[in-house]
Structure formats: structure tokens, C-alpha cells
């Protein structure tokens, strides 16, 4: 499997967790905004399953990216910036998905606030990783 294969794999897999995480945060915020019972639960469900899908797909994106960079953990230039955004974000997404798959809807208002803050930080991290990933493509 050569570089072209891993580049295609990375391009194909990396956009799913990117979009799914943003969708998840968006729906969770909407669920928080709408305080009425059913609507809030529906939005929260979409947020939950989007996060689970993002967490399920992200290892493939990470694996193909590591293969593409031949095992480089940090690197230099745009690759280093990409990684500095990506690794904390990846850890956060998996951790939040793990937490949320246990608590489901049994969550206090305060815990929900912390969750939204961390998920928002993960979304910002994902945007940063995506931006610097795009810069690497433009540089070539």
C-alpha cells in the first residue's frame, strides 16, 4: 500500500468525524436551547449518535493519517500544527463518547455544561486540525 492509497484513505475517512462532531455539538446546543421535553430529547439523541459515529470513524482517519506520515507523531511546519490540534481532539472525542455512552440521558445540568464546553473545545480543535491539514494539501 503506497502513499497514494493512504492519501485517498485519509481524505475519505477524515471528513466523517470532522462533520459528525460539528453536527453533534450543534444538535446538543440546540437540545440545550430548546427546553421543552420531546424536542430537547430528540436533538440530544441526534447529538449523541453523531458523537458515537464520529468516535467510531475517527480511528480510521487517524490510522490512515499516521500511515501517510510514516509514523510521524508531531513532525514540523503545517504537519506539526495539524498534529498539535489533532491529538488532544482525538483523545477528547473518544473520551467524551465513552463518558456519554455510559451516562446517556442521566446527566445533571452542570455535567451537561461541562460536556458542552469540552465538546465545543473538541470541535474547535477539529477545525484547527482540518485547517492545517488543508494547508498541507495546498503546499503540495
Amino acid at each position: 500500500m503506497n502513499d497514494a492509497f493512504w492519501a485517498r484513505m485519509h481524505g475519505g475517512t477524515t471528513h466523517f468525524p470532522f462533520v459528525l462532531l460539528l453536527v453533534s455539538v450543534g444538535f446538543d446546543l440546540a437540545g440545550c436551547w430548546w427546553r421543552s421535553g420531546i424536542r430537547a430529547r430528540e436533538f440530544s439523541s441526534v447529538g449523541f449518535y453523531s458523537l458515537l459515529l464520529a468516535a467510531a470513524v475517527s480511528p480510521f482517519a487517524v490510522l490512515s493519517g499516521i500511515a501517510l506520515s510514516k509514523g510521524t507523531l508531531i513532525g514540523s511546519g503545517a504537519l506539526a500544527r495539524h498534529h498539535l490540534f489533532l491529538w488532544p481532539t482525538f483523545g477528547l472525542v473518544i473520551g467524551l463518547a465513552g463518558w456519554r455512552s455510559v451516562v446517556r440521558t442521566r446527566v445533571s445540568r452542570r455535567a451537561q455544561g461541562y460536556y458542552l464546553a469540552l465538546a465545543g473545545a473538541a470541535a474547535v480543535g477539529m477545525l484547527g486540525a482540518g485547517y492545517w491539514g488543508g494547508e498541507m494539501i495546498l503546499a503540495h
Binding site: 500511515a67 507523531l73 491529538w87 472525542v93
Partner: peptide
């Protein structure tokens, strides 16, 4: 759940380190 979340995060980072070591060996 918080402990599980933290463990999941650590697991993800171990996954990254293992994958990196594997591809460096390859």
C-alpha cells in the same frame, strides 16, 4: 462515567502511539 471517559481518552492516545510505532517500524 468520568473515569471511563478518561480511560477511553488514554486508550485513544495509546492507539496513536502504537500505530505510530508500527508504521515507523514498517
Amino acid at each position: 462515567p468520568i473515569v471511563l471517559g478518561v480511560l477511553s481518552s488514554l486508550g485513544a492516545l495509546v492507539f496513536v502511539l502504537a500505530a505510530s510505532a508500527f508504521f515507523q517500524m514498517v
